[in-house]
Design a protein around this nucleic acid. Structure first.
Lengths: 336, 336
DNA sequence: CCCTCATTGTAAAACGTTTTCATTCGCTAA
DNA sequence: TTAGCGAATGAAAACGTTTTACAATGAGGG
């Protein structure tokens, strides 16, 4: 257990060279079984624990990957992180976790810190990729994969779902239920996923059904419960023109929407239908249970990490840009 | 930006020795301003980025701490992690995050992995401390602090709230509202916090009010929403003997309780009063909003990390065992 | 003008591994 | 018997820092 036992002590104890000890520790097959045993015994007896830092210096591999997320206390990113961690563990990697708060300067700073720590790779998640960041990514000495994050040119490894088509499907399901006016509560438009993809999906579904686009049906939030409530209340002020079907960009906002409606004396789904996005655990913790687009965050995390290991192991890779399937989970906040 | 620039390259570029470069990088004052500038220029021009692994080997400090939590995807631990990370950043540490799933073998394995990686310290959270683990903790070469985790002998650094008194207060508030029978839905009793502390608080509040303890009013759950529903439904089967006031061990279970009641056609707080524990974000995402004991997870994380830095810096420490204040947040699931 | 001492810089030894290359050993085949 | 060969082992050089011990330089006091 003592931590000042070095490979050299083991070598002396087992009467071999440190190279041989190293071979045993690393499972190198070129060791005679009898010496292997001798060394293993010495290791057990001394309680030797290899120093990963020294190992990292000598081998230039740290078996550690950096993970940058906006905010781990958000259930959404926490799920992602768990997916990453699980497959990291599977491949014997550890995770250095960092919160960026979506702050571009902090993102760059964190990237540099991680590179300084010689991580073997990085998984990044953020709403918007500042061009400085992309430049740094492209010159990075270690591979970087984007999780649930789009980059303009699709030239970085990334794992996403098809946000446009997901939004399209959600809005279409509302239209199919007979709605002519659909409310859309989304996150900041400068984030590509909201501003381009989800928004495009919303519009294309309207167009497809020959419904007019009306700017006042679109309200911006910041992903939170409160912003969802606020957005819905704003919509409610439209009076008769208020859409009776709402597509919210996150589950948390959808909960806010539902509660805003209930607080105003409306029934969901009888008077208003609402559909969320992400399928976090929250979705089943509300009455009525929330119909939502499932974005499999855990899977995105897991697949991102798997993709990273493939790159690290130089395995054959079909595509750098993987798109995971989405679907709509029908629950009780919409009429089926 | 190139990562194969070493301190030696900088030294050559600036025409000084590597020791001087090291001094500049580490802010050692014994460097003439003019040389400092010369070195800094070389660093900037070459895009030198110190290798933290080499630094760690030479200095025996990695500015990295390990964090072991049961499951980061649980909103509760995620909050804790954020608290830890924030003050870690403040003190220039990074976090290696690990999920233990409360599995004793995994906990020991993770501990050893972290020690192998030469972390400067560890923050641990887990429901139950297996004695093997405690033994390892006590012989650890680096300091370990427990976050929201009790250990039998209170001889390890730890940050908690007074769970017994918190539970007592919660139950008492229910009694003060006129209830004679109080339901208690808690987590696994082998976890000290549930089995000893919260339970003791529950009983002492009853005793204080001269109310009888009735075993059938206590139901075990596993912290989740579903287990909360199930537990409440079990209580409901008591018919007329069913307690009309419930103290749930976590917010998530409390949500389950409320929904179980509502699904059965009861009104909260008119027919039943419910009080939760933790004050996670969930508490305000339900109707009625949840009255709950606030256990400040973010603060516990932050204070744990601060305590760890104090130990690492050998700062003066009042007490190894800090108890943070708790309080009850009155909302709408109880009558005030 | 010499001596001493503080200041600044240098050289080199850690730190604990992995890895390269050479060497030894034990056999087999000639 | 011995040359030849592959497998097993060892010696020592990296890896990129920090740190220690010391040398050189320069300033100030006598």
């Amino acid at each position: 257990m003592n931590s000042n036992i070095t490979i050299y002590d083991v070598a002396r104890e087992a009467a071999v060279s440190m190279a041989t000890v190293s071979r045993v520790v690393n499972g190198n097959p070129n060791v005679k079984p009898s010496t292997r045993k001798k060394v293993q015994d010495a290791i057990d007896q001394l309680g030797y624990r290899p120093n990963a830092v020294a190992r990292g210096l000598a081998s230039k591999k740290t078996t550690t990957v950096g993970v940058i997320v906006p905010d781990i206390s958000n259930i959404f990113f926490a799920d992602l992180a768990r997916g990453i961690e699980d497959v990291a563990t599977m491949y014997k990697y550890n995770i250095i976790l960092c919160n960026s708060d979506q702050n571009p300067e902090k993102e760059i700073h964190l990237l540099n810190t991680l590179l300084g720590k010689q991580v073997d790779g990085i998984i990044f998640m953020g709403g918007r990729l500042h061009e400085d960041l992309v430049r740094e990514f492209k010159t990075s000495p270690v591979p970087i994969v984007l999780a649930a994050t789009l980059n303009q040119d699709y030239d970085l490894p990334a794992v996403n779902i098809d946000y446009e088509s997901a939004a399209h499907d959600a809005v279409k399901s509302l239209i199919d239920n007979g709605h002519k006016r659909i409310g859309f509560i989304t996150g900041p438009l400068e984030q590509q996923i909201n501003g381009e993809k989800k928004f495009a999906g919303y519009r294309s579904a309207l167009e497809e059904a020959n419904l007019p686009f009306d700017e006042q049906n679109v309200v911006l939030g910041n992903y939170t419960y409160d912003s969802g409530m606020k957005a819905m209340n704003q919509l409610l002020e439209l009076g008769d023109a208020c859409p009776r079907a709402i597509f919210a960009g996150t589950d948390e906002m959808a909960l806010g929407v539902i509660h805003a409606l209930q607080d105003a004396g409306h029934q969901v789904p009888e008077d208003f239908e609402v559909i969320g996005h992400d399928n976090t655990r929250l979705a089943t913790m509300i009455r009525p249970k929330l119909t939502t687009v499932v974005q499999p965050m855990y899977d995105i995390g897991a697949v991102s990490m798997r993709l990273l290991t493939k790159i690290l192991n130089k395995e054959e890779i079909e595509t750098n840009n993987v798109t995971l399937p989405h679907r709509i989970e029908q629950r009780d906040s919409t009429r089926s």
